[in-house]
């Protein structure tokens, strides 16, 4: 199929992008890395979009330290996250997640902001943001605001970004001394979206466990987190399996995904403990 876009404009900065969006009569659509959006356009799943290309807005890209947080621009490419030294040191979960995301060509173009805004329930970065307790930064016609990752993912492909709002970046807390972060997933082939996956972070304050590709949105498995804090892995596995209601599709049934979640949790805990030993 041939895409049927309504138009294209390149924004030079965020105000320009917001202005283009305001003038688009509701047809505006931000284009970042294009790795999800262009595929959708090429399937005519979306037609007549007025594409507002934000990919060249320099301010929105790059990683910098911001006190006890890292601030990551929305347009930072997956590949850049994967090789960034600050990320490797302070948020290794994100570095590790990158190798599970798609293939090199897609990682060279796809952006972390796009992945978060797109909110695919099987995507890695949204689950990482949850596990890390990230704060997302947005800018719209009425100004800027911060949104906790827990408040961001609403439904399949749906976030709490307001109409026309741009995700400008996210802040993740720097890993404290002794903090461990791991990601585990199973995909049918390398680069495929996960059948199910999870991110586990162990901090002084306790465990944070997020699970993806197990429901309409990535979610924090709070029951399992409590059981892990109590040191009871079996109870954590049981709680996790009870907390999710994974869908069935052509790749796997919900039952398989539920089973897999438990296996992955055991593997993640084993890796964390391996790190402690």
């Amino acid at each position: 199929m041939k895409a049927s876009a309504g138009g294209y404009a390149r924004a030079v900065d965020v105000p320009h992008a917001l202005e283009l969006m305001a003038g688009s009569a509701g047809a505006g659509r931000y284009l970042a890395g294009g790795q999800s959006l262009v595929a959708a356009l090429n399937m005519r799943l979306s037609e007549g979009d007025m594409l507002i290309d934000i990919s060249r807005i320099a301010d929105l890209s790059g990683i910098r330290e911001d006190g006890d947080h890292l601030r990551i621009g929305a347009l930072t490419r997956h590949a850049d996250i994967g090789r960034d030294a600050l990320i490797r040191t302070h948020a290794p979960l994100l570095s590790d997640a990158v190798r599970h995301i798609a293939h090199a060509a897609i990682r060279n173009r796809g952006t972390i902001g796009g992945a978060l805004a797109h909110a695919d329930p099987a995507a890695e970065f949204p689950a990482c943001a949850l596990a890390l307790g990230a704060t997302l930064h947005a800018q719209g016609g009425t100004g800027t605001r911060d949104i906790a990752a827990e408040e961001f993912f609403e439904d399949v492909f749906t976030t709490t970004l307001a109409e026309g709002e741009i995700l400008t970046g996210l802040s993740v807390p720097k890993a404290e001394a002794g903090e461990v972060q791991v990601i585990e997933e199973v995909a049918r082939r390398s680069g495929d979206y996960a059948l199910t996956g999870l991110c586990l972070v162990r901090r002084a304050a306790g465990h944070r466990l997020s699970i993806f590709s197990a429901g309409p949105v990535p979610m924090l498995a709070r029951g399992a987190m409590a059981a892990l804090d109590a040191g009871d892995l079996d109870a954590a596995v049981e709680a996790l399996r009870a907390e999710i209601d994974p869908p069935s599709d052509t790749q796997a049934s919900g039952s398989y995904r539920r089973h897999l979640a438990g296996v992955l949790l055991r593997r993640a805990v084993k890796r964390i403990e391996g790190d402690r030993a």
């Binding site: 049918r188 790749q251 398989y256 089973h259």
Partner: peptide, 8 residues
């Protein structure tokens, strides 16, 4: 095909 699910 011998999918992970069929094997389990």
């Amino acid at each position: 095909p011998f999918t992970p699910e069929r094997i389990l």
